[in-house]
Simulated assay, not measured.
Amino acid sequence: MRAVIQRVKAAKVTVLDDLISSIGPGLCVLVGIKASDTLTDVDYLVRKILALRLFEENEKRWQKSVKDLNLEILCVSQFTLYHRLKGNKPDFSAAMKGEEAQQLYNQFLERLGKSYDPIKIKDGKFGAYMQVHIENDGPVTINLESPDQNQGDEGVEK
């Protein structure tokens, strides 16, 4: 699994001008799922997202996590995170297919809520053509990928 995590002052998702979800300060997490991902990948991402120290305390940077500060998280499924370029055209064959991806993504949201606070976890609309409005804070953007289970996780911080 892959996540692009942005520290935000605010974020929202709309579909056809209808507000789906919105948050104040916290994290906006774009989530991509590849065909071989499992619950092990879900657990890794959940643990890392909640533990990332992306916020400051007493004017010291990188001291607090979203969980430490009781902030919100807006998650948005984004299969395009698993693209390969074929010339100038993106190929998304590495991404997990629709229904299976939706089930794993829902488990990701559920486990994120169980490990934190389900009221603080917001979501876009899986499979929809969405508009994601992000007010970056910093800007701070972190790319995160779960370790490849077939190759072990040497060098990957737990």
Rank of each mutant, 00 (worst) to 15 (best):
N143F: 12
I134M: 03
P25R: 15
V13S: 00
K34G: 06
K89D: 02
F79C: 01
I49R: 06
K89V: 14
R2E: 07
L81P: 07
A51Y: 08
E145H: 11
N136Y: 06
V8N: 04
E56Y: 06
I121S: 06
A94Y: 10
G113I: 05
K64D: 01
L50G: 10
Q149F: 00
Q107R: 12
F55C: 08
K89Q: 14
D117L: 13
K89R: 14
Y82P: 02
E154P: 08
T38Q: 01
H133S: 12
L27G: 04
V8G: 09
E99R: 14
V76K: 00
K67G: 03
G113W: 08
K64W: 03
L109W: 00
R61H: 13
K158V: 13
G127C: 02
A3H: 00
N58L: 07
V76P: 05
L71E: 06
G32P: 06
Q78W: 07
P90A: 13
D18K: 15
G98C: 01
L104Y: 10
G32A: 10
V46Y: 07
S77H: 05
Q151M: 13
K60S: 10
L74R: 04
E57P: 11
N136K: 08
V156K: 07
L52P: 04
L52A: 03
E135S: 02
D41N: 15
V76A: 00
D41S: 13
E99Y: 11
Y116Q: 02
K86C: 09
Y116I: 05
K48W: 10
A3F: 00
D137M: 05
K34T: 05
Y105W: 11
F79E: 04
I49T: 09
Q63K: 15
L27Y: 08
Q149T: 11
D37Y: 12
N106C: 09
E57I: 03
G32N: 08
V8Q: 03
V66K: 05
I33E: 05
L19C: 12
A95T: 00
D37S: 11
K97A: 07
L104F: 09
N70K: 15
L71D: 08
E99L: 12
Y129C: 11
R61T: 12
L109G: 03
S115F: 02
E72Q: 15
Q103H: 14
N70T: 01
W62V: 01
N88F: 14
S22E: 15
K12G: 04
N58R: 13
Q78A: 11
K12Q: 13
L39D: 12
K48C: 03
V15H: 02
V76E: 05
K89T: 14
W62T: 03
L45C: 05
V156A: 04
L39T: 05
E100G: 07
R2P: 02
D43M: 01
D68F: 12
L85M: 14
A3G: 11
N136R: 12
K125L: 15
G152S: 13
L45N: 02
D148F: 10
R2I: 14
Y105Q: 11
S77F: 01
D17I: 06
Y105K: 01
Q103P: 00
V15D: 09
D123L: 03
P90E: 09
S36I: 08
T141M: 03
V156C: 10
K9W: 02
P90F: 14
